[in-house]
Amino acid sequence: MLLIPCPYCGPRSEEEFSYGNEAHIPRPKQPDKLDDAEWAEYVFMRSNTKGVFLERWMHAQGCRRWFNVARDTVSYEILAVYEIGAPRPELELRRDV
């Protein structure tokens, strides 16, 4: 079970959180301007990353706030947590993944 450092509450056990999948997929501003494939890409397609993955979590049993997490999907190491809307963190590229 992961130990997730909620940026608002501090480190808490994974069971307090709900998962929100890949981060940095903003809702298109004008959906009606997208063709079917582009819209499907937004609604359905998510990457299945081996290595550093930027993903969303929500502290459901705590502050109920959403935030982003950079997590290594191989080692499960949490490399960064940052607010929704903040830019992608600069992380060293890891050679071992």
């Binding site: 809702r27 929500m58 459901a60 959403w66 929704i84």
Partner: peptide, 13 residues
């Protein structure tokens, strides 16, 4: 409730 919160926080803060 969670659905509303999510859009408020993540898309339209």
């Amino acid at each position: 409730f969670g659905h509303l919160e999510e859009f408020l926080q993540t898309e339209w803060p």
